[in-house]
Structure formats: structure tokens, C-alpha cells
Amino acid sequence: MASTTAGAPMRGSRFKMLAQRLEVRMLALALVIGFCLSLLSPYFLTHSNIFNMLDQSVVIGIVAVGMTFVILTGGIDLSVGSVAGLTGIILGLSLQHMPIVPAIAVAVLAGGGIGLVSGLLINLFGLAAFVVTLGVMAIGRSLAYILSGQTAISDIPEGMQDIVYTNILGVPSNILFLIALYIVAWAYLTYTKGGRTIYAVGSNKEAARAAGLNTLFYSVLPYVLSGALSAVAVTFSISQLLSADPLMGNAMELDAIAAVVIGGASLYGGRGSMIGTLIGVFIMVMIRNGLNLMGVSPFWQGSAIGTIIILALLVERLVSSRASR
């Protein structure tokens, strides 16, 4: 506590200051995991596997952007997976009646609309985000089944594949989209009034309101964004598979939340960054990819991933409490 301190704390070296940043430590962890996996599997660091992993990062990476915004305000969105499933079905059905671009617009608007409802319920009526989005999660999945008639919609136009497989300078368009999205999100959070407000709202909502910030708008916006980005993510999935399944996005909320938290965000809000989340996404994808390469049974993979996540956070907590003392 400030009132019990005398004299200024000592200044650390540049390296120490760097090491105090969670993102830096998590990047180191990602590199260590990558190094270990490259030793275990010679295929891991090949050009094609790296592109494969980037490709696998796209869907979860997009959802994690919305989740980062939500968690920064101190909220949580459990509905991203089922919103992805529902908006995927909406996209599949729309594609039977209209061209690709308007169909995608319908799906994204639907996702944003669902997020708007959740955000308003949470912030206007003071309901717990956990409970509201849990309810929306159940409703979303249920509607996905009903709208799809319990089967996958497989007559998706071939033109959808262009969204994923157009190469620009040798890089697939979905990977470029992911990179662009993270740059835009990072710039928004860092340099705009809205971005700084989102941090302030998550850190101390009462103080933010007393300073004249529009706390209601910037508390709801992340949910809208999260819903819309769930629809964007499922659009990329459908483009690859040329099929819209009501089960799409199942359990995706867990991967997204895990990626954000591994990336250093606090579930109480106010702390986290886009760079951290991106590293979190890569760590999740690398582990899964590595386990596949080593031929670990899919039934064991859940245990392995869960253990690694908990261990990573435990080590991080032990290291950070020493670093900040």
C-alpha cells in the first residue's frame, strides 16, 4: 500500500522491465513450446506445417479478438461458439437466396444483433454476463439445429472458397485477414478514445463514468463486436469446408477464453492486449498441432491441453509475483 511505503522503488534494468511484461514472458513460453515440439517432430517446423498452423489459427483467432474486448471490460462471452453455429446456418440458408456478399452481411449483422441483445441485458439491467451469455449460448445452439433441420447444409457455392484460398504475395487471404484484424484491433485499443475507454471501464467503471466517459456504450460495444466476429469466423470455416453444420463452433468459447487468458488478460477487466491474445492463440494451436503430429489420441489431447494451460498460468503466476516484488 502506498501509505506504508517510504522512498521510491528501485529502478530495474531494461531487460528486467521487458521481462515484467506478460506478453514478453508468454512469447518466450510460445518459443519454448515451439522449440520442444520441433525436437519431438521433425515435420513441425516445415514450411507447410507453419502455414497449416497459421491456417488453423484463423477461426479461433478471430473469435479471440471479440473475446479480448469483452474480457477487457470485465465481462465474458460464453455464447461465441453457439453464435458461430447459428450464424453459420443463417449464412448457409442465405446463400441459397442471395449472392455471397449480402449473405455474409446478413450473417454478420445477425451475430452483431445477438451481441447487442446480450450487451444491453447485461449493462442496462445489471445482469451477470456469465449467466446472460450462458442463456444465449443455449438458445443459439438450439436455433441452429431448428433452422438447419438437424442436418448440415452442404450446397454452399464454390465461389465461397475464394475467401480463403486467394493468395496475395504467396500468403492465403484468410491469414492476411487475421493479421490485418489484429493490427486494426490493436490500433483501436491503443490510439482511439473508444479503445482507452474500454480499458478504463474494465479497470474502474465508476471512475470512468465520473470522468465523463460513455461507459454504457463502450460496455455494450464489445458484445456486439464479439457476436459479429463469431459470424466472420464461421464464414471462414464454411468457406473451407463448403458446408454449414449446426454443430460448428462447438466448445469454441473455451478455446477463445483460454487464448485470451494465456495472453495475459485479467478476467476482472482492464488488463490484456491484442499481442498477448495472438500469442495465446498461437500457443493453443501449436500444442494441438504438435499433439496431432506426435499421434497422440484425440481423447488424450483434452487432458494434455488442459494440463498445459493450467501449468502455463501457474508458472506465470509464480514468476510474475517474484518479478513484481
Binding site: 482507452r196 474502474n204 470522468a211
Partner: peptide, 19 residues
């Protein structure tokens, strides 16, 4: 009611400006 703990001193100083 006043301090936003996760923002730097500078941003705390500029909080009402942001509002």
C-alpha cells in the same frame, strides 16, 4: 471513484480529457 488502477499515471491524468 477516481483512480483507474490499470491505466498509467499519464492516462489517469488525461482521463477527464478523454471524457
Amino acid at each position: 471513484q477516481n483512480i483507474v488502477p490499470d491505466l498509467s499515471v499519464k492516462e489517469n491524468l488525461l482521463l477527464a480529457h478523454l471524457g
